[in-house]
Every structure is written in structure tokens, then in C-alpha cells.
């Protein structure tokens, strides 16, 4: 696709728009900012999931587990007064660590079995969060009454308004995009794609398949935990109901619709599935929100049948997906 303006200009334009976005609404429309922040959080999540699904071709149906692990770790640490800037790396390490341990046995499994196992793991994390009342306060969520998730402090002033979080989330989204972009075009990124296309051939080309898969798995888990940690601080409340299986599926839907393995596609998927329904809520009425999942289901099937590469296909992928697979 030919763009009317060159890429750097487009990127700077988008960045500028994002920076002034809050002021387009007079700086105090809490809802517009809330949606923007939500889109940001989902973008980080989906970029993470994209590393396993999009690049490496490993379908993960329990990604919310890592979001949950990040959010709970952050909430627990923060309640005990640990600073956000220390909490964040801890969450990322915990998320990555659990992901690594999960990957050891399950990455050997074939694609659809892997999907089911990650699904089961996602539900296990949710059920454990629901039942280990001592640690997570069960369905009542964290923080407990009387406790508080401590504020994020940056250079002496504290972030407590949605607009502060908007810029914080924006910074992390940009970081996530940057990391994804560098990864995609690195040697490792090409190894991911090689595994997705043909594991056997990749192995024969000298790629250490097990190790590379594990790396992809761990990096994506870290993205998930990062998003969770930010979310916990922003909303100030974490409960197991936030991390259901359908939320994980929702993430997969965003990636599938937007375009697997393409950063722009993933961002578009998030905007279409998270942002647009919220925007349409006020114009089309609340009834529309009820129908959105129905529509997403149909769209998911339609996309996978008629445009498996997604709305914005990755350049590499659009070349590859149409070749029929021999059984």
C-alpha cells in the first residue's frame, strides 16, 4: 500500500496527535482519556501477545494470566509501599519467570494442544487468584479496605490524575512499539518467523527451535506483566474477574482482525475492538455495546476465512499464508 506521505512524517504526525490528544477535549474529559489509556494498555498487551501468535505462530489462549500475574504482583508490592519504579522490573521478571517455567514443558506440544494448555493455565491462574484469599483477597480484589496502592512518584511529584497516566502509558506504548519493531527486524525476529512457517526447516537451518520459542514466550509474558503492573496502578483495583478466558480471546481477536505479525495491524485491531465500540456507545446508545461481542465473533470468522492476513497484513506474512498446507 502506498502512503501519500513518507513514513517518518506520518509517524511524527501520529506522535504529535497522541501528545496533544488530551487537550483536544479541553484536558478534562475523563472518559476520553480513560478510553485512550485503555487502548494504550491493550496495545502493550497485544504487542506482547503478537510476539507469540504473530511472529512465532504459537497460539496462546491464556495470555490474561500474565496480565493478572503482573497486576497482582504490582498490587501486593505497592500495598506494602514499594515504589512503582522498583515494582515494575519485579513484575516483569516475575511474569517472565513464570512464563519461562510454563514454557519448559508446554512448548514441546503441537499448536492446538498448546492453545488448550495455555487456556487451562489461564483459568488456573484466575481460579487460584479467586481462592487464595490470604494473598489476593479472593473475588473481593486488592487492595483490601484500608489499604491503598501507593501513588507513582516521578521527580518529586506524584501521578494521581488520569492525564498523568495517559502520558505514562503513552511512554510505555512507544517503548513497546520500539521493542517490537527492533525485534521484528532482528536475527531473532527472523528466527521466530522461520519457526512459524516451518519448524522442521527452521531446525535444519540451524535455529535452536526450543530455545528461540522459549525466548519468544518469555518476552511476550514480560509485556503482559508490564501492562498488568501499569493497569493496577492506574485503576488502583485488581480482582480475578478481570482476567477471564474471554478477555484472552478478546486479545487474540484484536490481533487476528488487525493483522498477525504486524505492529500497525495490531494497533489498528486494538483501536477497532476497544476504542470504536466505546466511541459508538454514546452515539448508538448502550444497546450497541451488548451487540459488540456478537459482531466480533462474526468478524473473527470472516477475517480468518476471507482475509487471514488481517486488515493490515505484515509484508512477509501476506506472501506466505495463501500456500495450501500439505497434510
Amino acid at each position: 500500500m502506498k502512503l501519500p506521505i513518507s513514513k517518518p512524517y506520518l509517524m511524527s504526525g501520529v506522535l504529535l496527535l497522541l501528545l496533544v490528544w488530551p487537550f483536544l477535549w479541553g484536558g478534562d474529559n475523563a472518559y476520553a482519556l480513560y478510553i485512550a489509556c485503555l487502548i494504550g494498555i491493550y496495545t502493550i498487551l497485544c504487542l506482547g501477545l503478537n510476539i507469540t501468535i504473530g511472529y512465532t505462530g504459537l497460539l496462546d489462549l491464556g495470555f490474561m494470566a500474565f496480565y493478572a500475574i503482573g497486576a497482582y504482583t504490582a498490587a501486593i508490592l505497592s500495598i506494602h509501599g514499594v515504589s512503582f519504579w522498583l515494582t515494575l522490573p519485579v513484575c516483569v521478571l516475575v511474569g517472565g519467570g513464570v512464563r519461562y517455567l510454563l514454557g519448559l514443558p508446554v512448548l514441546k506440544l503441537r499448536g492446538d494442544y498448546l492453545a488448550i494448555v495455555t487456556l487451562a493455565f489461564g483459568e488456573i491462574v484466575r481460579l487460584v487468584a479467586n481462592n487464595t484469599v490470604g494473598l489476593t483477597n479472593g473475588p473481593k480484589g486488592l487492595p483490601r479496605v484500608g489499604e491503598k496502592i501507593s501513588e507513582i512518584r516521578l521527580f518529586g511529584w506524584s501521578l494521581n490524575d488520569t492525564i498523568h497516566f495517559y502520558y505514562l502509558i503513552l511512554a510505555f506504548v512507544l517503548l513497546a512499539v520500539l521493542v517490537s519493531h527492533r525485534l521484528e527486524h532482528s536475527r531473532l525476529g527472523r528466527a521466530f518467523v522461520a519457526i512459524r512457517e516451518d519448524e522442521l526447516a527452521a531446525e535444519l537451518s540451524g535455529i535452536h527451535v526450543a530455545r528461540v520459542k522459549s525466548v519468544a514466550f518469555v518476552i511476550s509474558g514480560m509485556f503482559g506483566a508490564l501492562a498488568g503492573a501499569i493497569y493496577a496502578h492506574w485503576i488502583g483495583f485488581v480482582s480475578p474477574e478481570m482476567f477471564t478466558f474471554w478477555e484472552s480471546v478478546f486479545l487474540v481477536a484484536m490481533i487476528v482482525v488487525g493483522g498477525m505479525g504486524n505492529i500497525g495491524g495490531v494497533v489498528l485491531g486494538v483501536i477497532l475492538l476497544v476504542g470504536v465500540p466505546e466511541i459508538l456507545r454514546s452515539t448508538l446508545g448502550a444497546k450497541f455495546v451488548d451487540y459488540r461481542m456478537l459482531v466480533f465473533g462474526v468478524v473473527m470468522v470472516a477475517v480468518i476465512i476471507f482475509r487471514p492476513q488481517g486488515l493490515i497484513p505484515s509484508k512477509r506474512r501476506s506472501l506466505e499464508l495463501h500456500t495450501p498446507e500439505a497434510e
Binding site: L59, L61, G297, M300
Partner: peptide, 11 residues
């Protein structure tokens, strides 16, 4: 599998 999940959401 993805298509099946879509159908599942739809139904």
C-alpha cells in the same frame, strides 16, 4: 481453531 472460537463467541 480461531474460527471455532469466533463461532463460540457468536453463539
Amino acid at each position: 481453531l480461531i474460527s471455532a472460537i469466533g463461532i463460540s463467541i457468536f453463539l
